[in-house]
Every structure is written in C-alpha cells, then in structure tokens.
Amino acid sequence: MSDPAKPLPVLELDDLRVRFKTDGGMVHAVNGVSFRVDEGEALGVVGESGCGKSVTNMTVLRLIPTPPGEVSSGTIKYRGTDLLKLSAKEIRKVRGGKIAMIFQDPMTCLNPFLRISKQLTEAILLHSDMTPDEARERAIQELERVGIPDAAGRVDSYPHEFSGGMRQRVMIAMALCTDPDLLIADEPTTALDVTIQAQILDVLRRLQAEKGMSLVLVTHDLAVVAGMCTRVVVMYAGRIVEEAPVDDLFADPRHPYTIALLGSVPRLDDPVGRHLTPIEGLPPKLAEEPTSCAFAPRCTYAFDRCRAELPKLEPDPDGRLRACFVTFKDGVPVEPVDAGGAA
C-alpha cells in the first residue's frame, strides 16, 4: 500500500486482524485493516460504535488484553519496524515515548490515588534522562501549555480536584510531555460537553501544529473530523470501507456506508457537535470473519455480488480508495446499472 514516492510513513497498518475469544464464541473485531499515517498528518477514523476503532488503535500499542484478544494476522509498522514483533521491553519504549494515547473518559483515565505531578513525571522520567526536578518543571510547563491556570500551584493536586475538561487537559499534557511522534486520541471529547469539547480540540490542534506530530483522531463526530483532519478512514464491521482526503469525502462520498453516514449527519454548515444518528438496521455481529460485504444487508444499492464476495479496498481511477462493487458519481450509483433497484 505504501507509495514509494512518499517518505516512510510514521505508522502503517497492513491487513490487521484482531479477534476475541469470549464465552459466547469468537468476536472478529478487526478484519483486515490497512492504513497509514504520514509525518505531521492528522488522520480521522470514523464509524459506528463497535466497528473496531478502539480495538484497532489499542492494538497499535499492544494494549489489547490477551487473552481473550489475539492478533491473528497483519503488521503494524512504526517508521518501518513492526510493533507486533517487538519484545515486551522494546514496546514499552514505544508506548508513551514514541506513540502516546489518550482515551475517551477523562474522569476514569487518571489514577485517583496519585498526584497529577506523580502521574506526569513518571512518564517523563521513563522516557528521558531528566532528573526528578527537571521532570517536575517539564510537567508544569506542559500543564501550562494545555491551558491549566496556576499549573505550578495545582500540579500536586489529585485528579478529583479537577473538572472533567481540566482532567482531559491533564491527560493531553500527560500524553505530550514525552514529545511523542504520534498521538492517538480515541474519542477525546465524547465524554465532555460541547463548549469544553471545542476548547479541548483547540488545544489538540494547536499542540499538534506546535510539535509537528502526527495525530490519529478517533471520533463519532464528523464535524470534528472536518475541523481537525486532513484524511479520513471510514470503518465498518472491522474493515475500512473508504479512505479519502477529508474534503473529498464530504464532497464526493463513494461508499454507500459513507453516503449513509453523511446523510444521517448534518451538513458542515450545521452547528458544531451534532453526532451521527444511527443508520437503519443493526451493525452485523462479528461472530465470523466476513466473506461478503458486511454492509450489504443494510445497503440500498446491494446486488448479488455484494452478498457473495468481499469487496477489497481498492483505488478508483483517480486514486481514491474504497471497498465497494458499485460505482458512484456524486452520491448516485452509476454501475452496475441495476444496482439501484436491488434494495
């Protein structure tokens, strides 16, 4: 998938498959995901709840509990080295050092028993040769940068002394205090209310620019993607169904699922912060690896081939990537001709 003309991507996933062995049988959460993140780029990952966004991203840092989780195939290359092949010690260097991650719920993601200073400095000390005093200085600086007032005075507080928005700022400071190359933010604003969301996204955008790091932003919120990202991947049932530069995607969606997503979502000129409303039908159970298009049962345009064969993520003539047997132009199917009647 990597284009030889381009420089080595920061992160490159190839055919990643992750499954979970549960009491109720196998759950195939990720079924062949491939994407890349270039230097300094912000990639958006969108899709319905349960489509495997978090699992994909947690697998990058090997944070999936094993068992029940298991990576059954694929590679995850960070600047060319496969993270899945690293020893436990080597992956620890990557975690927090090269690739940092922030999670959805700031209320529960900070350790309630430890002071903020401790939680920040332990990461700094781990990934640099600073002395404890320097690390503390650094932590205060970082807290200032994410916009915590009186950072020096509050660095020794406990998490419960902060509000939710402040805690998410702390989380960001904690992720960034080691100067990672890549930040994976898994729905960083979902748990926060709208005005706070905007502030947090502002902080993220500013720091990404300042530090020149790459960003993977997982979200439900297409408006967020539009404001933050350069490129988007759309996931469905553990697979990527479409990948495109963000403007192209909004202007010319080429997968029925994306079309449905955009249809179910307000347009860009709608107020910020409205979420996807669900699409008709239920997402599939992931008990088996898909052998045909997983979206077909809910798809207005599906025809026989969609129910028999698994569409691959392939480039259209103009280079846009999508996984669908139907061809669209301006959100209308043009090929096969009878596709529209298949519903």
């Binding site: 944070l63 990557v94 529960t108 993601c109 350790n111 309630p112 990461a123 781990l126 904690m174």
Partner: peptide
C-alpha cells in the same frame, strides 16, 4: 480493569510498577 490502569500501560510502565504503584492502593 479500570481505565487508569490502561493509561498506565499506555505510558510504557512495566507491569511491576503498574501493579505496585498504580493498582495496589485501590
């Protein structure tokens, strides 16, 4: 199973530190 333990893993801490420093108290 708490989120903050996942955060600790994501920082790159070793299991022993996670257990003793982050998990033990709770």
């Amino acid at each position: 199973n708490q989120d903050y333990i996942r955060t600790a893993w994501a920082k790159g801490l070793r299991e022993r530190v996670i257990v003793l420093r982050h998990a033990m108290r709770g």
